[in-house]
């Protein structure tokens, strides 16, 4: 198996680029906490409304700099009254579903979370700019999928 000299140059360049990409995302993810949404917590999908923190969805302040927003997703909407959070503070989103798979996606942010029944998805995000952000479901969930949306106000 003989590689042409130029093919070697190309592969070295290509593989080096891939290593750089991986290092950039890896370092940013694991040392600066920029991992994608996820989490290993589970929940009984039929008892969501009786299980903390989803028995009391909405915004709660955890400490001076941290807020938690708990959301229950269902076909075709989100149960979380009065989503108002401050800019510049860490917001921890916790979402689960009572029925099928959904997403909890906030337009123009890094918040793009899959919501899987039986699992709790977590994502931490800090809004920089105040305003009203569109929330939508981007995982097909049925006839009303394209109607499934909401809004969060950042003040």
């Amino acid at each position: 198996m003989h590689l042409h000299k130029y093919e070697k140059i190309w592969l070295v360049f290509g593989i080096a680029s891939l290593i750089v990409f991986l290092s950039v995302v890896g370092v940013s993810a694991f040392s600066h906490d920029h991992t994608p949404s996820g989490g290993m917590d589970t929940i009984d999908p039929e008892k969501v409304n009786e299980t903390a923190p989803f028995d009391n969805p909405g915004v709660s302040q955890l400490d001076d700099d941290t807020y938690q927003v708990t959301i229950v997703a269902m076909a075709f909407g989100y149960n979380a009254p009065e989503m108002k959070v401050p800019a510049g503070k860490e917001i921890i989103f916790k979402v689960t579903s009572t029925d099928v798979v959904h997403s909890f996606t906030i337009d123009n942010t890094k918040v793009n979370m899959m919501v899987v029944p039986g699992q709790i998805t977590t994502k931490s995000y800090t809004f920089e700019k105040p305003g009203k952000y569109l929330i939508l479901c981007n995982e097909y969930c049925g006839t009303g999928h394209h109607m499934m949306s909401s809004e969060i106000e950042v003040y």
């Binding site: 042409h4 140059i9 190309w10 360049f13 290509g14």
Partner: peptide, 12 residues
């Protein structure tokens, strides 16, 4: 294969 080298770098 100089043209090839330049072309793949274009892809890169």
């Amino acid at each position: 294969l100089k043209g090839t080298l330049v072309s793949v770098f274009f892809v890169g």
